[in-house]
Design a protein around this nucleic acid. Structure first.
Lengths: 98, 98
DNA sequence: CCTCTAATTAGCGGTTTCGCTAATTAGCAG
DNA sequence: CTGCTAATTAGCGAAACCGCTAATTAGAGG
């Protein structure tokens, strides 16, 4: 479960997608349009992110709206910080997400 | 550069190695001994981590001492937190496409 | 020199990932 | 139903990754 998250984060294009989604939800087409890679390629990157639960998809009529799942991202960052025994910014308690 | 870090983090055994190193420097043999996988396999995992600058190696006579590089780990965590526009405690850091 | 231990490197099959084109599904509108 | 747009799925070849065994380097010591 945690593994798929880090695997999803391993590809630059997918991290780029996440930074794009950081400012708000976006349509698949709009996201794909900003990359050199083909549309199906980007669609698969989105699928990988969704599989890792890093983003959620919501159908809106003809198109699909993607939204970043911040809590999973926070968990990953916490896990990383935990690797060095550093305070995560959240409390020592885990899963205390607002 | 940032890319190799996330790629290195993508494998469970390598994250496990980092958690082991979290409590202090250790010898390659001692680390490898705690895994089911063969010694050469673990040696390569260590090489990947070293390549990503997540750990440093120091020769000590016959053996090799590995040490975690906390700053790189912190940078990665910061990048992740930055993906959700959260304050990291460290300076703002962006993970460009690359 | 030779030998032993610690660790890495070389090379190999098997699996996964990646990016493409082509085909397909899903929804909307006439 | 037909056509159109948005997006995913199928399938393929190229490349990377993973874990193994065997071979090799590096250092300590007789």
């Amino acid at each position: 479960m945690e593994n798929s998250v880090f695997k999803a984060l391993a590809h630059p294009a997918r991290r780029q997608l996440l930074t794009m989604l950081r400012q708000g939800p976006r349509l698949a087409g709009g996201l794909a349009a900003e990359f050199e890679a083909s549309w199906p390629t980007m669609s698969r990157h989105l699928a990988v992110l969704k599989d890792a639960d890093l983003i959620t998809a919501e159908r809106q009529g003809n198109q699909i709206l993607y939204r970043v799942n911040t809590s999973v991202l926070e968990d990953a960052a916490s896990a990383l910080l935990g690797l060095i025994g550093r305070d995560t910014g959240d409390d020592e308690l885990k899963d205390a997400a607002e």
